[in-house]
Design a binder for these strands. Sequence first.
DNA 1: TGTCGTTCTTATCCTAAGTCAATGGATTAA
DNA 2: TTAATCCATTGACTTAGGATAAGAACGACA
Lengths: 204, 204
Amino acid sequence: MADSSDKKIAIDTIKSEMRKCFSEVGSFSDLELDAAVNLIGIKKFQKGELLLSEGDNAAQSYAVVTGCIRQYYLVDGEEKTTFFYTEGQSIFAPNSTSNRIPAKYYLSCVEDTTLTVITLTNQLEMYRRFPMLESLSRNSLQEELHNYQEMLANYITTNPEERYLNLLKHRPELLHRVPQYQLASYLGVTAESLSRIRKRIFIK
Amino acid sequence: MADSSDKKIAIDTIKSEMRKCFSEVGSFSDLELDAAVNLIGIKKFQKGELLLSEGDNAAQSYAVVTGCIRQYYLVDGEEKTTFFYTEGQSIFAPNSTSNRIPAKYYLSCVEDTTLTVITLTNQLEMYRRFPMLESLSRNSLQEELHNYQEMLANYITTNPEERYLNLLKHRPELLHRVPQYQLASYLGVTAESLSRIRKRIFIK
DNA sequence: TGTCGTTCTTATCCTAAGTCAATGGATTAA
DNA sequence: TTAATCCATTGACTTAGGATAAGAACGACA
């Protein structure tokens, strides 16, 4: 099998993507780019693997390169899905180096998944050496915050059927990548209800 | 009336609070503190005033000193409340200097309210001169993002009655400061339903 | 004091979603 | 190939919440 060389090539592709991304926000020498990129790791996970469990002290932030990660809470023994992270989306560590709070949720791979990983310590190191990257990070945090505000607002202002139609419109690929009962939970209804909603829409 | 001197005193108090806050994250000279604080304005609004309307290009971030701000969307002529900002909470501008998107929501004063205000340009100026403050900002953005993730997760995993009980537990003061029909909308139900929920809980 | 507007509550009826149980299809494992 | 498992669908029944309309409580204010 050409497995290890395949992996090698893929990782090199990702690293050069990262270099390109950093080059866009500031002018760095090749050595500096090396240093920055070397603070970031790349990890592969298999379908079903858990990145994080309730109670863990999350000290890493991730970004999805390929694949799909599901965030869920365990409430009365039931999995309540609250988000799906796909290509290009970031998962920020829920705590900082100063305050370490155990996670209340799980992160599980819906598919085989490749992620970039950066530890909290490396993150600080990176900002110390390359302040431009802290600006970049602040900006993407502000955007991400804005996204979440919109998602919350959207959730409050719509009913399950509207939410399903929204999903169909804005993230249609999810419907094929994710089992329906997980989608249902994400939309805030039971699997049975989602089935009925789909039927209702189909008839219309 | 001692109105203008009252106001003066209040503003001085707020400014000294800000100096204290900045001093905690880095060592600044008095002149530097002056410079930083002078980039931030203080504004008073009356109950009912609108800070922001749908379609506006928000170029300011706020923090509530005293009072209460309601965020709401107008959907089919109906106000859908999506958040209440009270003392100590920040309202981040939904867009950056680069991308200017018109706001989709309104910000309205539930009570007479005093806010600190910083424009996007002053924000950049501040980070340029005092990089420590950019770290501070990044950290609070990360915390705020985490808050929103939890709020969304909480909204997805609970029903209206549970959400009301949560509010009772975590922000009880809101129940007295905000009219019930606005709370209802925030909880994702009609005013009539919230009335029934309250009755149900009271009987138990 | 009485009137008006706003907010909250109550009643009725209807619909959407939850619950429980059963079925059938699809995929995987033996 | 046959079980076994997982998942989506359907049906019957219950319940919470939406829509509408009407009345009660409250406060502002002339």
